[in-house]
Design a protein around this nucleic acid. Structure first.
Lengths: 355, 355
DNA sequence: CTATCAGATAAAAACGTTTTTATTCCGATT
DNA sequence: AATCGGAATAAAAACGTTTTTATCTGATAG
């Protein structure tokens, strides 16, 4: 009977008490030794560490969490859409999560994912995480020009890193792509190729990066001394359907574009689909430059010129910055704005047989 | 000074003790009242619930976790690849996570994501989750024909749901697609269209569903009284590059395929890219049938025939099943094998101008 | 009129840590 | 020889719950 109980005991994972009984030290000493406190003598520490290893001791996360108030979680806000036909939507999140996951790999933090359906939803979830301290840090993207999450988080001092920047002059950790520059460069390349009617398939104008891209788009025209074709800026969701519908509409205009700049690969695929239906050929009848979110543009037929965004790397940076921020580092030190690499796969100019 | 302390107090979120002081009941009664224990008198319960609402009381998850041993987390194992050029890899995980997230929305469970790099890695992570009870339940995909995770989890009684089935006759909760049937149907359709040399762009043969597809592929030939073109089965990862390389190789054979069945949209895009390079046209020179993982096949040029897998719905089922399993439901009751819907976008037969 | 019982609530213990405070021991200083 | 100081460790408290056990109050049965 007693033996039975003893062997049952054995099954349960060892706690700090087991270790105390086993080594003869008190639980306080055990805890300090394992946490690396300098007050415990070296031989003692060695003995305790050895015993911990021998018994396969693993600190109970729940006990630690209760005592320290930490959760050892990093939360990521992920957009979800259940609408049929929008399956590509948010596809790049696999990459982001993968990057963040890698960054957290060697830390004590686990990744928790919270789906949101709307901007308002995202704010509520962020607030709940802060209020209930459901996580020790937060990562999110889809930053609005005036994003209430950033105000709230900065004010509360809660550690976070955003993928994207809002338009307020606040100090916070962030990772971003230089969207203004990229849109400028893409547009300028097309203008240099002889295009004057250029369409921009853009995201929702509430999003900070959508505005950045409009800025770059306009600047390219301005610096070339041309009037920007603002009537050819379409904004909507990032779906393939939106890309297709926009291209069909724009190319049907009386004064249609001769080139298109696309927000991401999902919309690009839609645009290419539209061009196929209209029997127009990329590189011959019309030029397309796109952002590369999952790096498949090289396989489009024909391959098209893109800005390569190393999104998984950005994800890794997000994770790394969050770890450092949670460790108390100054957010002013934690900023990265990367310039995507232009990969020219087409000449993107008006060839001899056009116009 | 005392006033200051009082106002500080106010900031802290109320605990069960605050509620006790506020209502005059003991913490035990508070806890029971809020958990719905029948021993507490109705008026008492009402008063306590009212006070909880008034003070905005939210049970502290860490306290609950420590006491109950539960974590209120559902873990998902997600494959990650950091190799450049494999960015589409695992793209459907956005859909799965989105579905699971939706299923957990109204529960007390949070979603935690664990990236793995290899099958061995996935097993180790699963084991750690069980050993340290880092979660209350587990979801994973990429099931192997002989998957050690399933053996381990079944033996330990840990709640889990797999996306896919292994080939052992074990009882466990799962969601799957009828891959044998789908491969059979695709192949039979092509055979009916006059094809005899059919390629199968397949996944790693250790994966259970890769075997299922080979089974269905072979059966279609067998039932048509033909010899299966087993020499045209390619297996590899699910990348676009693999699709492209395989198609180039197969179509360069002395006795090349006249049709291809593709494992997913990523490989399909690669196959289409290869066909473009070779100047062969889908529906004219060669036919392609594919699995639809993110529903963009309709936008390929030309659109191709696919099996539509409602993957987000499967994700939702995974979440729902896990909740029920964690609530103690019999795993034998928790099984779903869905037949994907064939969406014919091409005739998929040998037209007059071929052969 | 007392013992019993049930119903309601309170008290206490427990979950596994970390952190603050207390104790012990020993060598050095007065 | 008594005291001090510091190093090492132990003890105790605390984090916020849930659950087991105890107490109290009336009512009912003997």
């Amino acid at each position: 009977m007693a033996e039975n109980k003893g062997s049952e005991r054995r099954e349960l994972s060892p706690t700090i008490k087991t270790l105390a009984a086993h080594t003869g030290y008190s639980i306080a000493t055990i805890s300090k030794a394992l946490r690396g406190s300098p007050v415990v003598a070296q031989p003692t520490r060695d003995a305790i560490v050895a015993a911990a290893r021998e018994l396969g001791y693993q600190a109970n996360a729940r006990g630690m969490a209760l005592r320290t108030g930490k959760t050892y979680r990093a939360a990521v806000l992920m957009p979800i859409t259940s609408a049929v036909g929008y399956e590509w939507d948010g596809v790049e999140y696999t990459q982001i999560l993968s990057g963040v996951s890698q960054a957290l790999e060697d830390s004590d933090y686990q990744l928790s994912v919270h789906g949101f359906r709307s901007f308002g939803d995202a704010f509520e979830i962020a607030r709940r995480i802060v209020d209930q301290s459901a996580a020790d840090g937060l990562i999110f993207s889809d930053v609005l020009a005036d994003d209430p999450r950033i105000d709230m988080l900065v004010e509360s001092g809660f550690p976070f890193v955003s993928l994207g920047r809002c338009r307020k002059p606040l100090v916070y950790a962030h990772v971003d792509v230089d969207n203004e520059w990229a849109a400028f460069t893409a547009t300028a390349r097309l203008i240099a190729g002889g295009h004057e009617r250029i369409a921009l398939i853009n995201a929702d104008r509430r999003l900070s990066y959508a505005l950045d891209r409009i800025d770059g788009f306009s600047r390219a025209f301005r610096e070339a001394g041309l009037a920007a074709s603002m009537d050819l800026v379409a904004d909507g969701d990032l779906s393939t359907r939106f890309g297709r519908d926009s291209a069909l509409r724009l190319l049907g205009l009386p004064n249609p574009p001769t080139a298109l700049v696309c927000i991401n690969e999902s919309t690009t695929l839609g645009v290419l689909s539209a061009l196929g239906s209209l029997e127009r050929r990329v590189g011959v009848d019309v030029d397309v430059i796109a952002y590369d979110d999952i790096n498949v543009s090289a396989y489009f037929t024909p391959p098209i010129t893109t800005f390569y965004q190393p999104i998984e790397l950005l994800g890794r940076k997000l994770g790394e910055f969050l770890l450092r921020r949670m460790a108390g580092e100054d957010p002013a030190e934690l900023a990265l704005v990367s310039r995507p690499e232009l990969i020219g796969r087409q000449p993107d100019n008006l060839g001899g047989n056009r116009r």
